Amino acid sequence: MAACYADGITAGISATQYGSNNSVTTAQAALMMMKALGYFQLSKDFGSDWQVATVKQGSKIDLFDGIVAGASTAMTRNDVAQLTLNTLESTMVETDGM
C-alpha cells in the first residue's frame, strides 16, 4: 500500500487519512489500475471530472469487460478479479521521455 501511495497509484480520502478499510467503487479501482498502467499521470489528464475521464478511458481499453458493477457502486470480489485480469491484459502507456 505504501509503495502504491508513493508511486501515485493511490491517494487516500484526505490529506491525513488513507481509508484502507473503506469499500472501493468501480471507478476508484479502475483509476488505480489505469494509473499503474501509466494513464492519468497529471491532474490535467482528468479534465473537469476524474470519474467521467476514468470511465471513458477505461472503456476505450476494455477495462470494464465482464464487470457488472456501476461506476459509483462498490465492487464484488468477482468484479475486482475481472478488473485485475483486464488490466493485466491491457497495454501500458508508452511515454516519449518528456
Rank of each mutant, 00 (worst) to 15 (best):
T95C: 09
A36Y: 04
I61A: 02
M1S: 14
A3I: 13
T87M: 12
I9Y: 06
D65Q: 13
L88F: 12
L63H: 05
G8Y: 01
S59D: 09
V68M: 08
M98D: 14
M33K: 01
L42I: 00
A69R: 10
A2I: 06
K44Q: 12
T16I: 12
D7G: 07
Y5Q: 10
T95G: 12
S59Y: 00
A71V: 06
A69S: 15
L83F: 12
G12Y: 00
T91G: 11
A81I: 04
S23Y: 06
G38Q: 04
M75I: 15
V52F: 09
M1G: 13
D49G: 08
S72I: 08
G19E: 09
Q17T: 13
T54E: 07
G97S: 11
T76S: 15
E94G: 12
F40A: 08
Y5P: 02
I9M: 09
A30N: 04
L42E: 13
Q28I: 01
F46L: 11
Q28D: 05
S59I: 03
L42D: 12
T16L: 04
Y39S: 03
Q41E: 14
T95N: 11
A53G: 04
E94W: 05
A29K: 02
Y39H: 13
C4K: 11
A29P: 00
G97Q: 12
G47W: 04
R77C: 07
G58L: 07
A69E: 03
A53V: 11
L85Q: 14
V68W: 05
M34L: 08
Q41R: 15
Q28V: 02
A36V: 04
Q17Y: 02
S48H: 09
D65V: 08
D49I: 01
N78S: 15
L85Y: 11
M98T: 14
A36K: 11
V52H: 07
T84C: 08
A81N: 11
D49Y: 11
N21P: 07
